[in-house]
Design a protein around this nucleic acid. Structure first.
Lengths: 209, 209, 209, 209
DNA sequence: TATGAATGAGAGTTCATTCAT
DNA sequence: TATGAATGAACTCTCATTCAT
């Protein structure tokens, strides 16, 4: 129903055309922004309402509770990323190029939206209890992209065949993930996507024959 | 279900010097155990007190507040790890072997203490606001170990020279970190230290000429 | 589960005079039904709107607030009862027969409309603060019927003369009232009007010489 | 503003069995007083805390929630009444005298404690949903007292044998109950226990041969 | 040191009511 | 008339922390 703008500001023009959709989106944007700023636990629902310029109760017309605000925002962003990644990868043959492209997309997506990156890197793994099961499902989807490319490379003979694709995928993801975390802790004072190739290359060399 | 953290036992000698020092340790152990089980936010101070078999108020004789419980427990564990790592690495010449050893120590330390691993992987990065500054200091120490080994390898000519050591270190750490996270999400149903060499090798090959 | 209150249909004729007058009635019926099911406090205005198949806001075109829904529904039912009781009693000479007839009408009215009975017995006396003043006015009207019959019996010499008619009326009403309450708590699994004569006789004997 | 319930002081001895007698009792007294004044729903827990001169949170050391405050207060009062009634009735032989004594005890107990009477008559029957099941159990206990006396009178030949004891008991209770309700609506401006004999006599004559 | 009863600030959520359409 | 999206006040309960003993 609703679209998931990566750049919320970019969408705003179109969003104005739909009064109802406008509020939904404004609340989601405000949520990401407030959660990134204060942390999910410390953020009050009324903070989100204030930033979205709606009444507290209005939030509950669109979301069941505070947690659903977080989950929905993340889902939308993640689905948008996966959808884009899948369509881009379909155009690429080489497994190495596929992995390189994933690295670029991953770091571009989070590098272009600081607040979303904070939520993904910090809040989303805060608790093995609250969000892990949900987050785990996303991880599996993402990892499938990686593992398919790795197995393809192994089948084609360009990647080392005796390497467990699951572990290789974890190394690849872990390296990218750490790029994002470090970028945030460094106050995002460089362009995240610039390190995509360097990081991807280190792992790719490790994978290749 | 409860496990007695190895690294905390290192403290016990000093703690015995003051009366009732075992309470200090019991509280820390209980804190890690409760935080791992319920998450830091959901855990109540009285849960920790119950598990440590002390009164609620007693905890405040040893720790200023709930957060200091977490910080202290993590600090002790981290210091024990760093101390051990430093002394072990002093005995190793080869940069590649140093990195391999770090990987082993990292995964052994967390693989042998599930609760501590949960706290490190989940709770510790929950908030860029609460713990990041503290966590960041630790990261720098750890990363220095990695970066020194990498630069040594580059100086010796065994590692690729044009690779930024900071990024390389992030890849290495990120890969190990993801091994731990995945192990926890997989319900720790295999031995974590067994994947140390596989992961280390992938990165090492990427680093080497 | 839903029942269409008899006494409200008496109003329908008048309601038809204005457009969409059936909505007024539908809302009242829905209110009694929902209040009986959930209790006045727990019932939401939107529950009533849903059951009446109107929008929430529509209710406020007919009633000032939630409380007025209850008051109006009860008033209408009570007025219908009083009007019927007065016209029936006008045809009866004997004071004892009058009281007997009141008992029958009382238990028939509530016995034939479970939801209305719940509202009368439970919700209506829930609060000395909310409804007591309103309820008190009704009580006085009803009690006047009883007291007139009692005083008539005393004047005619068939009832004990030294008995305060006010107290006698309370005994009579209290007995009937308890019949209704007990019937509801017994899940209405017998015909309420069947106990009218038994209860009335006990009090009547107590009143008579 | 505050009223010191008589009957609760009588209970205090037993209250020692409960945690921390003084505060526990003060909270219960305050609860009855506040509930009577504002009604259960409208009363805020902080009102009760204020009147008991304790912090809001203290109430939750003794009672699970607001509802348990009401239920406990009523239980204690009811148990005290039943206990007294049972021991007094054991000393009386005549069924008629037994019923007369119950009427006196009933009206004395509520007549001597206006706030408790309000809670019993108004709040306790506010909802078929919240409290009826609980209240029903109490009713059964009380009604057993009445029915035993009635059956005894029938067995001895002083009461009409063909009268269902259950219905007779309801008439008796209903009459007394209405005395209390009317007394409250009349602003308690006469002594409630004075009408005990008059009401009891009306029903007793109706029961006797 | 040790206790644990007491404190009271704090926030998520509901829902009666309004009002622009 | 009719709608239903939007409002925002209101309140229970939790739990980190304190302090008298």
């Amino acid at each position: 129903m609703e679209s998931a703008p990566k750049q919320t500001s970019a969408i705003e023009g179109a969003a104005k055309l739909r009064p109802a959709g406008d509020k939904y989106q404004r609340i989601l944007d405000a949520a990401i922004s407030v959660f990134a700023e204060k942390g999910f636990q410390a953020a009050r629902v009324s903070d989100v309402a204030d930033r979205a310029c709606v009444a507290d109760g209005t939030i509950y017309l669109y979301f069941r509770n505070k947690e659903e605000l977080l989950v929905t925002a993340v889902n939308i962003a993640f689905d948008a990323f996966m959808s884009r990644a899948r369509s881009e990868l379909a155009l690429i043959d080489s497994p190495a190029e596929k992995l390189r492209r994933i690295a670029q997309l991953h770091l571009e997506a989070l590098g272009s939206n600081h607040d979303l990156a904070v939520v993904f890197q910090m809040e989303l793994r805060q608790s093995a209890h609250l969000l892990a099961p949900f987050s785990r499902q996303h991880m599996i989807e993402y990892f499938d992209l990686l593992r398919q490319a790795i197995r393809q490379g192994q089948a084609e003979g360009t990647f080392r065949p005796n390497l467990p694709d699951k572990i290789a995928a974890k190394c690849f993801f872990g390296a990218l993930d750490e790029m994002v975390t470090a970028w945030l802790l460094d106050h995002s004072n460089y362009k995240l996507s610039e390190v995509a190739d360097i990081a991807a290359d280190i792992i790719l060399i490790g994978l290749q024959k």
